[in-house]
Computed example of a mutant assay.
Amino acid sequence: GHIRKKHTLIDYGSGKGRVSIFMAYQTGCHSIGIEYDERLYEKALLNGESPAARNRVSFVHGDAALYELPAQADRCFFFNPFALHTIKRVLGNIFDSLYHHPREIKLFFYYVNEEVENFLNNHVRLEQEEPIDCSDLFEEKDAKERILVYSVNLF
């Protein structure tokens, strides 16, 4: 219920584009994948030609830390997110976008390391919501098998 047809999802570090395509297919949202590695970006472009993408998925070859969030983007996904210094730069760009175009923004973090999680949980602009439990996806138990969800406070 966090992501629906009316939303635009930014998939930071999108790799081959699988999350972007899956989310567009499942929810009908528009999805933009940002990928730094040129080989992965090229594979994402090929995968984006799949009927599952439904012309609702696009990819950008670039550095997530330099990417300016489009005004319509209101959902951001991070799988096994970057190092803390990069997360801080990406969040700065998100906050800048929010300043210029106030709106609700939700952030989703999957497979987060402890340092990044502590930073997110103590950030004054982020309000932690109930995490999404993913432990049923694998037989082995792993405390990281959850998606952390945050709402971004306007100011």
Rank of each mutant, 00 (worst) to 15 (best):
Q72S: 14
V57E: 06
H101L: 03
C76Q: 11
N122Q: 02
K106M: 14
V116P: 00
S58M: 13
G28W: 08
V149H: 04
I94F: 02
I32H: 04
G62R: 03
A71H: 12
E104R: 09
S58G: 13
I34V: 15
L66H: 11
R146N: 08
D142K: 01
V112R: 04
H2G: 08
L46R: 13
L148C: 10
L98G: 01
K5E: 15
A64P: 10
L107E: 05
I94K: 03
N55E: 14
N118W: 10
A64M: 09
R146Q: 11
C76I: 15
E139F: 14
Y41R: 04
N113M: 04
H7L: 03
F119W: 11
I21K: 06
Q26V: 14
A143D: 14
F79Y: 15
H85T: 11
P131N: 01
E35Q: 10
E139C: 04
K88T: 05
P51K: 11
H85V: 12
T86F: 08
E35D: 11
D74G: 06
N113S: 08
R89K: 14
G15R: 03
Y150L: 06
K16V: 15
I21T: 03
R18N: 14
Y150K: 02
N118F: 12
H123S: 00
S135E: 12
F109S: 01
N121M: 09
A53V: 13
F59L: 07
I34H: 06
L84P: 05
V124M: 00
N47G: 07
T8I: 14
L98P: 02
S31M: 10
K5T: 14
D133N: 10
D37C: 11
Y110W: 10
V116A: 00
L46S: 15
A52N: 14
R146D: 01
L9S: 06
I21A: 07
K88N: 00
E145K: 10
Y150V: 07
